[in-house]
Write a protein that binds this DNA or RNA. Structure first.
Lengths: 412, 412
DNA sequence: GTTCTAAGTTCAGTGCCCGAACGATTAGCC
DNA sequence: GGCTAATCGTTCGGGCACTGAACTTAGAAC
């Protein structure tokens, strides 16, 4: 919660703010709970919970779902859950060859997902931002048509974003440098006070897996996504750990083999060169390495086909990538201690074949694996993970600390 | 602050607790400040500050240092600072070949530092713990003689400690496994409710550098200490980042060269084998690599002598170590984004000679270095860093959240 | 229909922060 | 020396948020 690491004085309003989040959090964890249940769970008095719930209902965050179906005697509680007509998160993803937008409601449901293909590498920054503006306008219209408010805009970009400012420092695959995406989006759309979050695509994908993924109770993990580069999102205690300035997760250039092939970064044997999508496809013989890269999805399909058919070359290639990945990831795990690795991006589809050699390296190299094995999981969300995460991040901010949003909705 | 990540209901007492920490924190950052100054700085009302300060003074945490010497008219404020007779932290370090204890007061001053040589590798766990017990008893007596209370005990151990439980999972150089150091110390000393913290030696050393080191405004860094192994302590935003369970910082086995020499861990080319103390001393020709290792301090002296004399072999050895360190550390920095590296342990003395090759690798390999160079600093505390950190950690807990301590001292 | 149990609301009580007013202390100036 | 202005620290009434207990509402069991 924001109110504590910031050295701000606390007053009664702070208490209410904290407890609002507490109540909301209880409902998030156990949807359908009654006011009395929330009181029991949080330790707050019933009177307090009633007062807070009323406020959250008035703001459109919570909704009463009618009397609970419960056996035993006594009055039935009125169920509470996150309101599907409450604020929606508007997510945008600026991909290398597409632009995606979507709306996500408080229950995690995705609406109005739109994906617009188009090479963003070839166009100028201004041109791409104009596209983004149009896409976001359309998404706002979607929200209006559905009659729901937009709680904020989340923008996923394939590059390094400075956490404090929202400044995109560099996006290699887009050819961008020092673009103030947050300010540009704000200015072009005239969003007023609406929150605009800008973050790394891999980080948002990790968060999506945390919030909407298929692994319950997953709170601590390293989400490794193999795309053109290799990005990692570190989630600790249900929170993304971005490092000091937000440039963390760049594991693509961990040294895996000092005498390996040269990398664009100048070093040799970087993880990206030995376990990146491109290398796997080449080593598997799926792609000849010359000419423009065909749509990666198609190539990946072919690779999966060959793996399923137990093609020796493909199997060897993926096994090798798993080994390299194991060496690189174990370095990170030893440094930051996370018990789980989630394979995302294109790795998700290769999980079955990557896992053996990856797990083997992790078992050997991670110090704590001796008494607590590193768990390797496949991501459950597909390519939409990043947009969903971007939209979800907006909602997460509201759920973690609902008072600012409530204040904008309610008078006073 | 503890009260927030834990989903506990907040009440008026929570506000007071938070603001107590706020006031204390303001005085820590600007010793000698007056009540009015604290009010201005924190944003609290003067009345509130007065009330809180009175409480903290009564508990012995703050002390009035008399009227401020200040020019200009108006009544002079009464200076406030951390009380040197307030609670002291009692630090213990269980080293491989020594046992150290000390007392640290709230101002960071070290008292009653005692170092007892003795091989803890040869003795049984119970025997070593008995030694620890005696040493701590003596330190308690030191405190009593000085007439100051002990706020808690911090224990530094050369191994992996599970954060949640204080369980020492493994200490390779001590030959320990699964020792509940916290419970043992509690039981043997009958400490009642007194806080007992157990942590990794490298982590505590990093914290000592943060709290008492010679680099002001150092809040985010990776503290790398070269001893028998290579340990790292990651400090982000003035807080140690231990990872989920506390096993972070094990960078000794990052892969630096897959075709390098074999390591005890089974892998090849681990950082520890290429930049560890032992390897440097051997490559420099200071140690022949056979027979029992002489006291490392003496060997290190010799190495520094040769480096000062510009001995080619020694220079090459250290340069190589710096390069390896750079490869390993850059992997960590890319993953977690920290702008500064502090060279501690035996590396501190070699900083001058390690730095060029280390910095060179970091410049090349750390992605964010392109627009923000990684800073390399030498640690300013010597071998006592870990004990001081252990003692300091106890005090840090009190300063971060003084209310629990205040409650034990004051009635009500 | 009565009784029992649980949910949710109302209300007086308490703790804490805040702003304003007030007493205390010091420098500058006539 | 006495007056003024500025600053520090304390005192006091007011308001806000949580609490516990009493009360109302609602449903099930007998």
């Amino acid at each position: 919660m924001a109110l504590v690491n910031q050295p701000r004085p606390a007053g009664q309003h702070t208490v209410r703010r904290h407890n609002s989040a507490l109540v909301l959090g209880a409902v998030v964890e156990s949807p359908g709970m009654s006011r009395a249940g929330v009181a029991a769970r949080t330790g707050l008095a019933k009177a307090t919970v009633s007062s807070l719930v009323d406020r959250l209902v008035a703001a459109g965050l919570l909704a009463e779902t009618g009397p609970q179906a419960r056996s035993g005697r006594g009055r039935r509680g009125t169920g509470l859950s996150l309101s599907p007509s409450g604020p929606h998160g508007l997510g945008v993803e600026i991909g290398v060859d597409y632009l995606a937008t979507c709306l996500v409601d408080l229950t995690g449901e995705v609406h109005a997902l739109r994906i617009r293909p188009g090479d963003n590498r070839a166009a100028s920054v201004a041109r791409v931002l104009a596209r983004v503006t149009r896409a976001v306008r359309t998404a706002f219209a979607d929200a209006q048509r559905r009659g729901v408010p937009v709680g904020g805009v989340g923008v996923a970009v394939p590059g390094l974003v400075e956490a404090a400012t929202g400044l995109l420092r560099v996006a290699p695959n887009l050819g961008w440098r020092d673009v103030d995406v947050r300010a540009e989006v704000r200015r072009r759309l005239g969003l007023g006070d609406l929150p605009v979050l800008v973050g790394n695509e891999a980080d948002f994908a990790a968060l999506a897996e945390l919030w909407c993924g298929g692994h319950p109770d997953l709170r601590d993990f390293l989400h490794v996504s193999g795309e053109i580069g290799i990005g990692a999102g570190l989630v600790v205690d249900g929170t993304l750990f971005r490092g000091v300035r937000g440039f963390g997760g760049e594991i693509g250039h961990v040294c895996v083999d000092p005498v390996g092939p040269e990398c664009a970064c100048g070093a040799r044997g970087c993880l990206e060169r030995l376990a990146g999508q491109e290398w796997i496809l080449r080593a598997a013989g799926v792609w000849d390495g010359v000419g423009p890269l065909r749509p990666p999805a198609a190539l990946l399909d072919e690779l999966v086909d060959r793996l399923t058919a137990e093609d020796g070359r493909a199997l060897r290639a993926v096994r090798g990538a798993g080994r390299s990945l194991g060496i690189g990831v174990s370095a990170v795990l030893n440094a930051v201690d996370v018990p789980t690795v989630v394979l995302g991006g294109s790795y998700a589809r290769l999980e079955r074949w990557l896992r053996p050699s990856l797990q083997n390296e992790l078992d050997r190299r991670v110090v704590s694996a001796a008494w607590s094995r590193v768990e390797v999981l496949g991501a459950t969300l597909g390519t939409e993970a990043a947009v969903r995460g971007a939209a979800g991040a907006v909602l997460h901010e509201i759920i973690i600390d609902p008072d600012p949003y409530v204040s904008t909705v309610l008078p006073g």
